[in-house]
Design a binder for these strands. Structure first.
Ligand code: MN
Ligand code: MN
Ligand code: ZN
Ligand code: ZN
Lengths: 157, 157
DNA sequence: AAGCTTATTGACAATGGCTATCAATTGAAA
DNA sequence: TTTCAATTGATAGCCATTGTCAATAAGCTT
């Protein structure tokens, strides 16, 4: 076949999405596809409600429940990652298999979220898990603080 | 005075508690004091409901809302620390000013929570915050996995 | 010790993010 | 097309936590 020699780097998220639907007896629907595409288009760390609000602008009949449902599917398919910071919302971010693992630094004042990678921390975590005889499956590292902008604002007016 | 030359190491949590109440127009009540003492006695990472259940054994009339309220006060007073792992409950743990900061490694199978300290990770976090020009106020590091016991169980039975 | 003022309590209602339910609709296989 | 399971939007329900409120208790002040 034309694509099989391309060491699977050509797998787009859309292909992954369709494959997941197929293998799980799920259907491609106009709402589902729309939500998935809009999710991809918007980027960032988005809540179901934010995404729903955005979609509503063009497609006012799509229900919030369907957005929740679709985000869960995308997460199960490995296309989205669930994130829970400390604001009571579940957020989703698009996951590209090319991307490396990253953690987050969050501004508690304006909500800005920056991403960072730190191999040393990752390694140290592994050693901690080992020391406590835990099989590490996941981890969560979040730094909370005030971004440069918000720190400056606080100092002045 | 008899205590003033003791570089404040003699401050018990009870003193801190009473002081906090005083300075904030709050009252010492039998329920409040009971909840605070039971919280101290039980240790661990406890939920409001767990604590309430324990107290109910001896004092069946104490309301759950009062337990919630008291835990919030203890947190504000710096006597308890709030923790949110990924099980949907807010947990509280007693905080001793003598203790150093620690993070957590959590078994997703049996719920066991171990505590660890790692200065290298702490330092690396500071450097990340600095790189992103964030004023770090807090951070959360949790390792999720399976404890030795639960890993073994999974392999066999 | 009694009165006074304000905080506190327990019961219960309400909140809010999210999920379950259900009748109507749609996708896709035949 | 027909068929039939999957999907949808609306809405009810869930559940940890918080708000409300009338009754009560703390901690002054006399
Ligand atoms: Mn991210
Ligand atoms: Mn702890
Ligand atoms: Zn900010
Ligand atoms: Zn375990």
């Amino acid at each position: 076949m034309a694509t099989s020699n391309k060491q699977k780097q050509g797998d787009t998220w859309q292909e992954k999405y369709q494959e997941y639907l197929l293998h799980n007896g799920l259907k491609s629907t106009v709402q589902r596809d729309l939500i998935a595409n809009e999710f991809y288009r918007l980027k960032g760390h988005i809540t179901a409600e934010d995404l729903h609000a955005n979609i509503r602008k063009k497609h006012s009949s799509i229900g919030l429940a369907t957005v929740y449902r679709t985000l869960k599917i995308l997460a199960s398919a490995g296309i989205a990652h669930e994130r829970r910071f400390n604001d009571g919302f579940t957020r989703y971010e698009f996951f590209d298999p090319e991307d490396r693992h990253h953690d987050h630094i969050v501004c508690i004042s304006c909500g800005k979220v920056e991403e960072f990678e730190n191999d040393e921390i990752e390694e140290l975590q592994k050693s901690v898990a080992k020391r406590y005889k835990f099989t590490m499956l996941d981890h969560k590292l979040e730094i909370y603080g005030r971004c440069n902008n918000c720190s400056t604002k606080a100092k002045n007016g």
